[in-house]
Amino acid sequence: MSRESDYGFPPEEFEARVARAQKYMREHRFDGLLLSGMDNVRYFTGLDSSFWESYTRPWFVLVPADGIPTAIIPEIGRAIVESTWITKIISWPSPRPEDEGTSLLVQAISELPRRFGRVGAELGRELRIGMPVAQLNSLIGQLRGVEIADGADLIWQLRMVKSAAEVRKIQHSIDIAGEVYAAVPDFVRIGDSERKILRNFRSRLNEGGAATIPTLICRADVGGPFEITGGPRERPIADGDMLFIDTGTTFDGYFCDYDRNFRVGSITDELRFAQEKVWDANEVGLNSVRPGVTAGYIFQQMANSLSSGGQDLNNNGRMGHGLGLRLTEPPSVRLEDVTVLVPGMVLCVEPALEYQPGKIVLHEETVVVTEDGCRLLTPRAPRELPQIS
């Protein structure tokens, strides 16, 4: 189980994040960074709250190109923000639909020392702003001489590289899930429904110390699931199925994301071939991860491995992604992604194969890029499918 000391970060961690952000702001020609998405607010403040589930009250953090961040928040959140490392806090009595902090944002942004006349915001790839679009438009319309520009490249340049403390959080969430995966053959039986398996899996994750379990997928079909994104069914697993379980469990805000496959009773030669083919491609991908190569290079190596006898068996749009405060983050392990890997990046490497129409096998492992290669964070799945009887 987790100890209280396992949670949170020291102020020095956040100070280092702000310093890096300010360095990148000069490179990207920004006077500040306006953040309202829950993961970015948490990244800079350490704020842990389930209040994000309410869209009534937006929360903001303004990081200047020099100096300390300002939290611009609803009054109801002042006490919890005061418990973080943030010392500059401005609040308003919310809900106040006619002005949910917009006037305070206009004032704070207008008072930033103006060098470039641009403030970055969460407008680009794989980001979401935490306010209504109408409010953003109102903010833009009220600002004079300041452009709200896309800050996605800066944000991901910052967040793609994890600190050692962040990697420890990810490892902790992986370990929680790993203990439950290892126990699946002991608590799952032929005849159990997908819903029952999922409930038992979720219960064990909670007992193991999971903070939240935003993603948990349990699918089984003869020879493999026909899709791996939907919710569980009442369908009982049966002899000849392959059971697929995938979880995005969190610890202290940081996700794990990996799956495990199980044979239910007997196995066909075709499924055994696909299992070994995808496992081998995963091994190729893991061995390809090192500083200096691109995300696209890793994709190409796995795509080559999935091909057989001159036949291209790869039909994947991507075969992996980054991981952190979100279940999926840049880079994408896809052919066109030219992101160069550097130490500290955390990647999920996940080749997949539809080896027959409607039958999918996918393997996913997680690594952190090191100075001379990578380190496996997940316990490596066996090449032979574990059996459920």
Rank of each mutant, 00 (worst) to 15 (best):
S2Q: 09
D6M: 09
P10T: 15
V18A: 05
R20C: 02
Q22T: 10
D31I: 02
D31N: 10
L34W: 13
L34G: 09
S36W: 08
Y43H: 08
D48Y: 13
D48K: 15
Y55G: 06
R57H: 04
V61I: 15
D66W: 09
T70C: 04
A71C: 14
G77I: 00
E82H: 08
S103L: 13
E111G: 03
P113W: 09
G120Y: 09
G124A: 07
R125S: 07
I129T: 12
V133R: 09
N137C: 11
L139E: 05
L143H: 09
R144W: 05
G145F: 07
A149W: 08
L154H: 04
M160G: 03
D175Q: 10
P185S: 10
P185Q: 07
D186L: 04
F187M: 04
R195F: 08
A211I: 01
A220H: 00
G223K: 00
G223R: 01
G224F: 01
G224H: 06
G231H: 07
R233Y: 14
I237P: 02
A238Y: 07
M242A: 15
L243W: 04
T247N: 04
T250C: 08
D252I: 04
Y254P: 01
F255Q: 02
D257H: 15
T268H: 09
A274R: 05
Q275M: 05
N282H: 06
N282D: 04
N287F: 01
V289F: 10
P291L: 09
A295C: 03
A303E: 11
N304C: 03
L306G: 03
N316F: 01
L327Y: 05
E329L: 11
R334W: 01
V346R: 03
C348H: 00
P351M: 07
L353R: 03
K359W: 10
H363Y: 13
E365W: 00
S389A: 10
